[in-house]
């Protein structure tokens, strides 16, 4: 089977019912996506399938073939970090860091649909992701900072193009 992850095709071999999480981690070697609960409760395994945030621990492999999978390893542009990653560093968001790939992937999907989310929007989009270190307030700050940065960048682009 061919699985397309971060614009790269991976030849994988597994039972089609195998959760995408384990295929990404063990066969594609992309370990940024984490196992947390196995029942879709914690969000540590969040990846995007065609731009939609999904829990890879509950997504069978067969549902992921022919889809564009994006993981935490795939959101930077070359060496340039995504605005969310940059904001995460500036706000010093992570503590243990284990949940943060999932947090960033959920935030990434949120910003793709909502360029300037309110506090309530952020709460709603992010409450499927548990952080045991309690970094929630910094995650929220990070999302707002990234949203502002992205807004600025897109304005600049329009100006440049215009």
């Amino acid at each position: 089977m061919i699985l397309k992850v971060n614009d790269k095709n991976h030849e994988v071999e597994a039972d089609p019912a195998t959760p995408l999480l384990w295929v990404i981690r063990e066969q594609c070697g992309l370990t940024g996506t984490k196992f947390g609960c196995g029942i879709g409760q914690c969000g540590a395994c969040t990846v995007q399938m065609d731009g939609v945030a999904v829990r890879s621990c509950l997504t069978p492999l067969q549902a992921a073939v022919d889809k564009e999978i994006t993981t935490i390893e795939g959101i930077a542009s070359g060496t340039a970090l995504h605005a969310l990653q940059q904001a995460w560093i500036e706000e010093q968001v992570p503590q243990c860091g284990y949940c943060q790939s999932g947090q960033i992937m959920s935030a990434h999907a949120l910003l793709a649909n909502n360029a300037s989310p309110t506090d309530d929007d952020i709460d709603q989009a992010m409450s499927g992701n548990i952080c045991r270190c309690g970094t929630y307030s910094r995650i929220k700050k990070g999302i707002k900072k990234a949203a502002a940065e992205l807004a600025l960048t897109s304005t600049t682009k329009i100006e440049n193009n215009g």
Partner: peptide, 15 residues
């Protein structure tokens, strides 16, 4: 330790 914790490269035991 923060940069490696935003791009998936931080090595935890499980990785």
């Amino acid at each position: 330790d923060v940069p490696a914790k935003v791009d998936g490269s931080a090595g935890f035991g499980i990785d």
